[in-house]
Nucleic acid binder design. Structure first.
Lengths: 337, 337
DNA sequence: ATCGATGCCGGCATCGATTGCGCATTTTTT
DNA sequence: AAAAAATGCGCAATCGATGCCGGCATCGAT
């Protein structure tokens, strides 16, 4: 069937040994200019490409990095992936993308799959459901380079890239307060995620500084990250049907933001009275109705940084001792009213 | 660094040969139950996983399939990828995703990259810029299985999956006519794409059947598929500033649809007088303002079908002679007015 | 008792590319 | 002119897993 030319074919055709061909093809300090020219020309002619799989076996590495995200349909992640790819390609690495759909089982399967010597390192943003991290810790202990981005595992000693979630949440909440809102609800992601805790702290701190009491009934978590629309819908409808309903909602993530708006449009007759601000990297935000004030994360840059860090670990000669945590700033985009 | 246990390590530890261990690990009809048990237990204990790279080298295949799309941020493609993955995983294949960003150069690089014996087959949706298909034809001639979906290359003799673009376009245009529109513009994708031609035919046929003259000035192509927002903006602004401007726009693809709406919101003071209908698989469509009537493609199913077809070619013992072209129906979702 | 049949397992080559070592020549040095 | 150095290239091992072939023992049959 599909059978590309190998170094052996060239050797046979040119009546040389495979070693000579191999050396002629790369550097080749020990090969005469003449032979080198013959080999290179012939290789070009038969469109020779070295077999990366054979190389991986020999070199015990694959020049590819694995990316674990909840889903590529999420614009934050697709932008981050663009950043990852731009760095990876420029350094000669493949990128293999794997989606967890915020499921713990899928995360375990995908991580094991990728780790098994087919990637040189892993870029991970945790699934919303994940509470047990042993699948990652085991691999990391065995020496597989791992860098976290966005949804971080604080307890693991490695590089991490995140955005300033506390500040982003704080600014968004303060913006809602500045618009006169007094009862601000918080629609949050799964409680075990790093981003959830950080964003909730920012939200609470803003309320505190403006002397607005924190009402636990106005904070709801989506433990599957809004994997099913219904999960978001239930939470938002509880807000809406509250005896003393909120006059604003601060939403902690992309998927939840749009889910929240859909629900409001569907069920709230008076939805223009409720301001919504949330994290979103969607390019369609400005076209939404009800409108959404949004906090944007520098997804592309986060991807770039994470990929650079991972590749630096992979290519480091010695075990890394000192690990970095990078935090990038978000931007607030007010909208509506 | 990262060094997983190999079959050799097990052999040494158990004082057996590698062949025995190998056979004990899989079926092993020639190995005594006793040795088999010892090997399996030890393998389990040291968490042995066979090295897929070594296997790929030996078997001359990788159990992975490559997917070439313009970008994963596009919901149509991310949904198609979900379909592809669901089939691929269930049959034991990896999925490697590669983005062209509608650039011809990137397509060539990515295709070559994947083809080089690291994938067993390719699932391709052409880039908007691509006019020369030799990079794909060469590989196909060499025997690499290729299946097209969505953006098809008609001249290549292989399986193809598309949606009924003609019918979808026809219905959307007819819908606009039924709403009383008389001057319906068409914002199209790159002219060499299969979907562009099919959708344009549907549009023109609807006009013809309703005795509306076809005005070539009301048809504009985006030859980079709307890779840059500015490309769409220029086209739409030309529509808007026309002496006799359109009262509706039929848009041929997802990215163009949203780009069109943005531009209208930005520049058209009277944008509510212009109806817009277009292809879109975005989950946010219902929340858009200006509103959009949309044609939805069965992206997930298209991905499933394409993956099934590709895997059937890969696993077929004999060269396939008869190729299929599958066409799935779209659905129209009217909105606004 | 000898031969054949089986059961169980090890040796070796293989997939494609790389590389240390070593063997020829040729060129340079003394 | 003889010794030393340099040049150009081939042999064989290696990476991990597999599978053909062949060896050795045990058993039953003739």
């Amino acid at each position: 069937m599909f059978k590309p030319t190998t170094i052996k074919d060239i050797a046979k055709a040119l009546n040389l040994s495979t070693s000579t061909v191999s050396r002629a093809l790369r550097g080749g300090y020990e090969i005469s200019e003449e032979t080198k020219k013959i080999v290179l020309e012939y290789a070009e002619k038969v469109n020779f490409k070295r077999n990366p799989i054979a190389l991986s076996l020999k070199e015990r590495r694959s020049y590819s990095i694995g990316v674990i995200v909840c889903e590529v349909a999420n614009q934050f992640f697709s932008q981050a992936i663009d950043g990852i790819e731009s760095v990876a390609y420029s350094k000669g690495y493949h990128v293999i993308i794997s989606q967890t759909h915020d499921s713990y089982e899928r995360e375990v399967i995908n991580v094991e799959h990728l780790a098994n010597r087919s990637v040189d390192g892993l870029l991970v943003s945790l699934s919303a459901e994940t509470k047990d991290y042993s699948h990652l810790e085991k691999l990391h202990d065995q020496g597989l380079p791992i860098v976290f981005f966005d949804r971080i595992l604080n307890s693991m000693n490695t590089h991490k890239v995140s955005s300033n979630n506390f500040k982003g949440a704080f600014e968004a909440t303060e913006f809602l307060i500045s618009k006169g809102c007094k009862r601000i609800a918080h629609l949050a992601n799964a409680s075990q995620l790093s981003i959830t805790a950080e964003r909730q702290k920012g939200y609470e701190e803003a309320l505190r500084q403006h002397h607005i009491p924190i009402d636990k009934e106005l904070i709801k978590y989506c433990k599957h990250g809004g994997r099913d629309q219904i999960e978001v819908e239930i939470a938002v409808r509880e807000f809406l049907s509250h005896d003393n309903p909120p006059d604003a909602i601060f939403v902690a993530s992309d998927r939840l933001s749009t889910g929240c708006l859909s629900t409001m449009k569907k069920y709230a007759t008076h939805h223009h009275d409720i301001l919504v601000a949330g994290f979103s990297n969607s390019e369609l935000v400005e076209l939404l109705n009800p409108s959404l004030s949004y906090i944007r994360q520098p997804a592309f840059e986060m991807g770039e940084k994470a990929a650079e860090m991972l590749i630096s670990i992979i290519e480091s000669k010695y075990p890394i001792e000192e690990f970095e945590s990078i935090m990038l700033d978000t931007t607030l985009h007010p909208n509506g009213v």
